[in-house]
Structures are given as structure tokens and as C-alpha cells.
């Protein structure tokens, strides 16, 4: 009955499917393949089963990297989400300043990752950089290349500077979609600023904030360029997060099997976290719907 229904659409989808297969599925399968084999030079492989997996999971080094990764991700989420919402709340809802604010907010998002790293690297240099000079000038012993705490501080400030805008823009989009009548009703009901936020703005922003948190989670969990450009994971291993460790294993030590297994575990962690978070948020969303 519906055979003529939009059959043409498939022709447009096919190239995309092919593209996805080449740049996502096939590489992924290759990694799966590596993760269960031992490789020697000259393309000689042995099947190893789950050996690499158990090795990775039991390694102190992996756990440490994962721990650093989790601390980093949750720290920036804890800063960027509330800060982003706060900035969005302060932005004007109409008038000429709207576009000015939006452009200012969008600026950091337009700068490539490695450039951000380079900018902050120079900006924070204790002897040359403005930030480093000022901090040292006012009495802090600040040197991100030597002190782990300073490296962390720089990394987090950098990420917050770079990505809070994304949360701001999403939260702002959620905010301006709230009809005026809600604010007027709240005024009439004598609601405090906090009550307006808690009962009108926050519920109406929930969907976009879910998206914002998901995006920021996934992206920060996979952060590589910034710590790499800043200190290459140092000082010591202090900023060696998962992706940096992975590259060290794969390209530094050329442990292809171990790196592959680690990649898969890494991938699954991101997948499971995102999935659980999304389902929990959306289940609440549907509650009371009928």
C-alpha cells in the first residue's frame, strides 16, 4: 500500500550510511579485533580472549587515570552548569543587548581546541604570561609546569572559559521559550525570585539542561588536546587523564592490544553513563503525563 511512500528518501540516506560505516563502524570493529589479540611484528596475531581487558581493569595506572578523569569531569560539570545557568539568567530577554551578549558568549566556542590550549599555555606562563605574572605578583607561588595543583587549576579554568558558553546558550534558549504569562502569574502569586527559578525556570529548562550536561559530560570525558598542549599530562602524571594515557600506551609503548581494550572500556563507560543519565532524566519527564 505504501510502497511509493518517500522511496526516494533512501537514496539520500545511503551515502551517509556508507560514510558512517567507513568512519565509525569499520574502525570500531578494527579496534575490537585488536583488543582480543596479541600482535607481533610482521602482521602476526594470536587470539588472546579477554586477557587485555582484565589486564587493563586490574592495572593501577588505568584506575588512577580513570580517577583523574572522573574528578576532572565532575569538577567542570559542577562549575559550568550552575555558572552557565546563572549567566543565562542574567542575560537580557529582549532589546539590542541580546545579540551583543549572544555574540560575546559564542566567541570562545569558535576557537579550536589546540588554540585554546596554546592561548592558555602562554597566558599562564609564570614568567611571560599575563596570568602567571599577575598571580605571582600578588604573592601566589604559581607554576603550572611544576606544581600539579596549578596545572589542574589552569586546566579547569581553561575548560570553564571555553565551554560554559555552551551551557549558557542552551539554558538561554530554554529560558526565552517560557511565555510571559508564567512570570506574570508568579508575580501575582507573590513568588520570590528563588521560587520563580525553582518552579518555573528550572522545570522549563530541564530538557535543554539534560542535553547540555550530556554534551559536556561526553566532551570533557574525552578531553585530550588541552592537557596535551598545556603540559602533556604532567607534571608527572598529575593531569594524565584517560585519553592521554591511552595515547601514551598506543603510540608511546605501541601496546596495540592493551590500548584497544582500553579504548573499548573507555567507550563503554561513556556510553553507559550517558544512557543511564538520559533515561533517568527522561523518565521523570514523562511522569504524570496522562
Amino acid at each position: 500500500m505504501t510502497k511509493t511512500w518517500n522511496n526516494k528518501a533512501w537514496f539520500f540516506v545511503l551515502p551517509v550510511l556508507a560514510l558512517v560505516a567507513f568512519n565509525a563502524l569499520i574502525p570500531l570493529m578494527t579496534v575490537v579485533n585488536y583488543s582480543v589479540q596479541e600482535s607481533f611484528g610482521g602482521n602476526v596475531f594470536f587470539f588472546e580472549g579477554t586477557k587485555w581487558y582484565s589486564q587493563v581493569l586490574n592495572s593501577e595506572r588505568f584506575r588512577a587515570a580513570l580517577g583523574r578523569q572522573l574528578i576532572f569531569t565532575f569538577t567542570i560539570l559542577a562549575i559550568e552548569v550552575p555558572l552557565g545557568v546563572l549567566i543565562a539568567l542574567c542575560m537580557p530577554r529582549r532589546g539590542v543587548w541580546v545579540s551583543v551578549c549572544l555574540v560575546l558568549m559564542a566567541l570562545p566556542l569558535l576557537i579550536p581546541w589546540n588554540v585554546v590550549g596554546a592561548i592558555w599555555n602562554i597566558f599562564a606562563l609564570p614568567d611571560l604570561g599575563l596570568l602567571g605574572r599577575v598571580l605571582n605578583g600578588i604573592g601566589f607561588d604559581y607554576n603550572f609546569t611544576r606544581q600539579a595543583g596549578d596545572a589542574w587549576f589552569t586546566l579547569i579554568v581553561m575548560d570553564v572559559w571555553h565551554w560554559t558558553s555552551l551551557v549558557v546558550l542552551l539554558a538561554y534558549a530554554g529560558l526565552i521559550s517560557i511565555p510571559d504569562a508564567y512570570y506574570q502569574a508568579a508575580k501575582i502569586d507573590g513568588a520570590s525570585r528563588w521560587a520563580v527559578f525553582r518552579h518555573i525556570q528550572l522545570p522549563k529548562m530541564k530538557r535543554v539542561l539534560t542535553i547540555a550536561i550530556l554534551l559536556r559530560f561526553m566532551d570533557s570525558f574525552m578531553i585530550y588536546t588541552e592537557p596535551f598542549v598545556l603540559t602533556g599530562g604532567g607534571p608527572g602524571n598529575s593531569t594524565t587523564v584517560l585519553s592521554i594515557d591511552l595515547v601514551k600506551i598506543a603510540l608511546g609503548q605501541f601496546d596495540l592490544g592493551q590500548a584497544a581494550a582500553m579504548s573499548i572500556i573507555y567507550f563503554l563507560i561513556v556510553l553507559v553513563f550517558s544512557w543511564v543519565f538520559y533515561t533517568v532524566m527522561m523518565r521523570n519527564e514523562g511522569e504524570g503525563q496522562s
Binding site: 511565555p179 504569562a181 508564567y182 506574570q184 502569574a185 501575582i188 518552579h199 518555573i200 522545570p203 522549563k204
Partner: peptide, 11 residues
Amino acid sequence: QVFQFPVVYDT
């Protein structure tokens, strides 16, 4: 005041 479109606190 009662508005044109019903305003209720969803949560």
C-alpha cells in the same frame, strides 16, 4: 489573574 493559556506549575 487568570490568563489566556493556563499557567500551572508543572512540577
